[in-house]
């Protein structure tokens, strides 16, 4: 699969404006942010599914698109016909609304107070809640030898960050994080959808739980969350035997821990973006 895209990418680069947007992704919180936004804005797109076990996200063709070797990334054709590769979920979302959301369905007009405030929340998700919940998941799920201090550190910080969101939702008149549904809801929702997996209980955050269900009822969210494959969280949470959770944990651990070891190996050899 990787090889197919590899051989196509150079040719596709010169084809011009008919090419639909390509989303490079996997079934993770950062990936579904983009597919949900694309569904909301009804932008046609193709999906390239990375294989983290095979480490296709570290192959040279993809590092040319995203030098950080992570997902998501997009390739799009700009209005002048030239191509753009973009990565980092926050910057992709900003690009999508600026380019495609002329009716302000998911944001506010550029230069307004509301729009600047929107980006306070967006950066808070990508720089705060996202990384910290990621660390919590790592120490709860991927590291086999439990490190109590690290688990406590990231559980406390993640729960503190959830309480900031909880308070914001409690004071919101719209039922969303801001005065209407925006890309900020998409950003946080994608993380909250994985909260149970990280080890956060929504029973502790009733406002977040209510908002979570409300956002889930949007058809575009129900669709976008299942790209490039069905979202695992409901299956995992419904599985009373714990067998599926165990399998998923082993799968995640395998690529994360192997990836970390390979990254460390690459650093010794000075392999960029290893």
């Amino acid at each position: 699969m990787a090889a197919a895209i590899h051989s196509n990418s150079a040719a596709e680069a010169s084809k011009g404006p008919q090419q639909p947007l390509t989303l490079y992704t996997t079934q993770t919180p950062n990936g579904i942010k983009i597919s949900i936004a694309l569904e909301e804005l009804e932008i046609p797109y193709k999906v390239f599914k990375h294989d983290f076990v095979a480490r296709t996200q570290k192959e040279p063709w993809y590092l040319a698109i995203n030098p950080n070797g992570r997902i998501p990334a997009i390739t799009d054709t700009f209005s002048d016909g030239s191509q753009i590769h973009l990565w980092e979920s926050g910057s992709i979302l900003k690009y999508l609304v600026e380019q495609y959301d002329k009716d302000f369905k998911l944001w506010y007009p550029a230069g307004t107070r509301e729009n600047y405030e929107l980006f306070s929340w967006l950066f808070f998700q990508i720089g705060g809640l996202g990384p910290m919940q990621g660390q919590m998941t790592h120490f709860n799920r991927h590291v086999t030898e439990k490190i109590p201090y690290a688990i406590e550190r990231y559980s406390n910080e993640t729960r503190r960050l959830y309480s900031v969101l909880e308070k914001q939702l409690a004071t919101s008149q719209s039922g969303f994080i801001l005065s209407k549904f925006t890309i900020v809801d998409i950003c946080f929702w994608s993380m909250v959808a994985a909260s149970g997996w990280a080890g956060v209980s929504l029973a502790e955050f009733p406002e977040i739980h209510r908002w979570y269900e409300k956002v889930l009822s949007r058809p575009s969210v129900a669709k976008g969350m299942n790209v490039p494959e069905p979202h695992p969280i409901q299956v995992l949470m419904d599985d009373k035997t714990g067998q599926k959770a165990k399998e998923f944990e082993e799968y995640s651990r395998s690529w994360v821990m192997t990836g970390m070891a390979k990254d460390a190996e690459g650093l010794k050899k000075r392999d960029p973006a290893c």
């Binding site: 926050g90 107070r113 600047y116 405030e117 980006f119 306070s120 967006l122 950066f123 808070f124 990508i126």
Partner: peptide, 9 residues
């Protein structure tokens, strides 16, 4: 008159 937080924003 704006108040903002988060260094990136």
């Amino acid at each position: 008159g704006i108040t903002l937080w988060e260094s990136g924003a």
